[in-house]
Nucleic acid binder design. Structure first.
Lengths: 108, 108
DNA sequence: TTATTTTTGGACAAAATTTGACCAAAATAA
DNA sequence: TTATTTTGGTCAAATTTTGTCCAAAAATAA
């Protein structure tokens, strides 16, 4: 199996899965029903995958869908902070807010 | 000065600043040139502040603009993870990605 | 109480962003 | 070369976000 790199982007990961399987974009795009050009752009992080695409890709490559979604989410967060020039400390604050909101909205 | 609560949302913070100053929405909205209803919604986290609004608010209340922006950013990240049901571990991964990308894109 | 002020909630169109689809050119492989 | 694969760009449709406006609700003052 391809090695797991934590800093790898969603697109890189997806491309890795496909190349490891020795499949072409055409083949994968055909089987999961996603436009070939769109899929190529997702692999290059030029377009975002929809939830539907993430699900189909996970099924197709037999990987955990939640893990894939989380990988995509961490990409989005990293890029948001990078292009807003946000401080790294934001992440700790965000974590506290999440924990706080989870307990406050407990039940709801 | 009003106490600093780390888990406080951007809107709550903004409302706190205004109430601490004993000013009405009308007064503040008039002085910074933002529609009163929009400002009220921002305080209730029903609308997002634009960068411009954040800047004007920071100037008006004499608080650090970057801190305010970071407070807003941490809100956005917290909510994103909460409504995508993302794992808390995402934050650590995002941090690694940010550090990685900063060194990789060093100079650019 | 009534009158005034303040805040909220919703509707609306304009603007901005995101989406999937398509096709031709570029790059790679046979 | 030819065939295959990947890339880069355009496009309109769909979706989301934006600021503005107004009326109702809530709070405060008289």
């Amino acid at each position: 199996m391809a090695e797991v790199k934590r800093t790898e982007s969603f697109g890189e990961h997806l491309r890795g899965l496909r190349e490891y399987s020795k499949l072409t974009l055409k083949s994968v795009s055909g089987q999961i029903g996603v436009d070939i050009s769109l899929l190529a752009k997702i692999e290059r992080n030029e377009r975002q995958p929809s939830k539907q695409v993430i699900k189909e890709v996970a099924n197709f490559f037999q990987v955990n869908e939640k893990d894939l979604l989380d990988k995509f989410l961490s990409d989005q967060i990293a890029h948001k902070i990078l292009n807003e020039n946000g401080d790294l400390g934001i992440l700790k604050v965000a974590e506290e807010k999440i924990i706080y909101l989870k307990t406050v909205n407990n039940g709801k």
